[in-house]
């Protein structure tokens, strides 16, 4: 069921901003309130917004349950793989092998009060990203399943 043109245009304009806001919450998880779960949930609401504007059928054709299921599994595997890399490097499971190495997210944390540097945290931002991907897939999947049940009545 499509909503009016006003609603659809508003959804079109809002959609990228919701995505960017969600992504912001995910990658700043180690600096500000939020993180993978919260950011992933925000991104999933972007999909809910599209469904509200364009109707279940139009969106479910573009974003399939299979794709979302893959996204979910991929996020989960990325999460645990990040933890497993530590084992390969000879440290304990979940060891933060990126922190302080100077690589991606690997800058040392500044001493004392500071505004926070995105390029710190080691594996924590990576795991936030993985959780973000997982939650985005899983929550969208739940929404799709809930709405597919109500389709016949609509």
């Amino acid at each position: 069921m499509r909503m009016s043109k006003v609603v659809r245009t508003a959804a079109d304009i809002l959609f990228p901003f919701v995505l960017i806001f969600g992504f912001y919450i995910v990658v700043h998880g180690h600096l500000t309130p939020g993180g993978g779960f919260q950011g992933g949930a925000v991104i999933a609401t972007a999909i809910v917004l599209l469904i509200a504007a364009y109707g279940y059928d139009a969106i479910a054709r573009r974003i399939t349950k299979d794709a979302l299921r893959n996204t979910e599994a991929l996020g989960l595997i990325a999460f645990i793989a990040t933890a497993l890399v530590a084992l390969a490097l000879g440290a304990g499971f979940f060891y933060n092998w990126l922190a302080g190495t100077g690589l991606l997210f690997g800058m040392p944390v500044g001493f004392g009060p500071n505004p926070g540097d995105l390029n710190t945290g080691g594996t924590i931002p990576l795991m936030n990203l993985a959780v973000g991907i997982e939650v985005l897939g899983a929550l969208s999947l739940i929404v799709l399943y809930m709405l597919s049940g109500t389709q016949e009545a609509a």
Partner: peptide, 8 residues
């Protein structure tokens, strides 16, 4: 076994 430690 200590999770997240350099030496478990």
């Amino acid at each position: 076994y200590t999770f997240g430690a350099a030496a478990p």
